[in-house]
């Protein structure tokens, strides 16, 4: 028998099934933490955001309508919590690059790559929140522009505009990219 779909689990969660809720949390906890950490630049805050997002899922489950994928709805909750959280606290970007896996064969390349990753994290940190969310969802989470638009409650062309502005800002802040010149 295959794994229960997110939507099946949510139907059970809506009836107060704590085991189904636990399965959902196990399925989405890392994704929630990663997205929140990349957004906020702070692991401890990211854990709080993830926990809060799951508690909101639990509370709102009886009202949930499966008109969109559960993942889309859940990402929306996480992103909105991050947007609200960000209004209260400043970003701490340097923590972000530390755990990016490093396939570089030698120390010098590793050092250079770490420097580039930190620069990218800082440049992302400087983006306005919605541009930052659009970049994280499309380029880092690998979601389509249409799904990102659903999560950000925007049109697809609105998301593309956010990405155009974000990419301009990133190019300016990062300067010449590796491989250029």
């Amino acid at each position: 028998m295959g794994e229960a779909s997110d939507e099946d689990l949510m139907a059970r969660v809506a009836r107060g099934d704590a085991a189904a809720f636990r399965t959902l949390t196990e399925r989405y906890a890392v994704r929630a933490v990663v997205l929140a950490r990349r957004f906020l630049g702070n692991s401890a805050d990211a854990e709080d955001i993830a926990q809060d997002a799951f508690l909101r899922v639990w509370r709102a489950a009886p009202r949930w309508q499966p008109t969109a994928a559960f993942g889309t709805w859940f990402y929306r909750i996480v992103v909105n919590l991050c947007l609200n959280h960000r209004r209260r606290r400043e970003f701490a970007p340097l923590e972000d690059a530390a755990d990016i896996a490093d396939p570089a064969p030698d120390a010098l390349a590793r050092l250079a790559r770490g420097h580039e990753d930190r620069a990218l994290a800082r440049a992302l940190a400087d983006l306005p929140p919605r541009q930052r969310a659009a970049v994280l969802l499309t380029y880092w989470e690998g979601l389509s522009n249409a799904r990102t638009a659903e999560i950000l409650d925007a049109s697809v062309s609105g998301v593309e505009t956010l990405l155009v502005r974000a990419r301009r800002a990133l190019r300016t802040r990062l300067g010449p990219q590796p491989g250029e010149e």
Binding site: T25, L55, E141, G142, P178, E180
Partner: peptide
């Protein structure tokens, strides 16, 4: 070049810290 940089960050996937943080969240919720 920017795409390459962003894709590299994405392909790295969750690190050990993220996996541990995810487990902590699940444990706290339980």
């Amino acid at each position: 070049a920017l795409d390459v940089r962003l894709a590299r960050a994405r392909s790295a996937g969750p690190g050990a810290q993220d996996l541990a943080a995810g487990r902590r969240v699940v444990a706290r919720l339980a």
